[in-house]
Amino acid sequence: MGFLDAVLIVVSIYAAVVLIRVVIGPTIWDRLLGFNMISSKIIMSIVILSVVTDRSFLLDIALVYSFLGFIGTVLIARFVETRGEI
């Protein structure tokens, strides 16, 4: 097991720990914060995975992710703010 594999495991453990905040978070905004953090950790692990397996086309998927996680967070936040009208 190389160095980057260990880094990948540590990042995934961080994502699992953030999930605890998503579950117990008292309000909906705490959950959104956790969603944001988990999506950035997933982007990180995709980049590391592309270096580990030496497949550079995985970086395109990371690029797509960095757009889409953001769109989901902003939409849900606006939905909660305006009481149901997006």
């Binding site: 950035s40 982007i43 690029l63 757009f67 953001f70 936040a77």
Partner: peptide, 26 residues
């Protein structure tokens, strides 16, 4: 691939503050 990673970094610099701003403002 280095240039691509740089591009991803630029994207995250632009979009990450926007989502944090949306959550805090909401």
């Amino acid at each position: 691939s280095t240039l691509k990673i740089l591009f991803i970094c630029l994207m995250v610099i632009v979009t990450n503050p926007l989502s944090t701003h949306a959550v805090a403002r909401s």
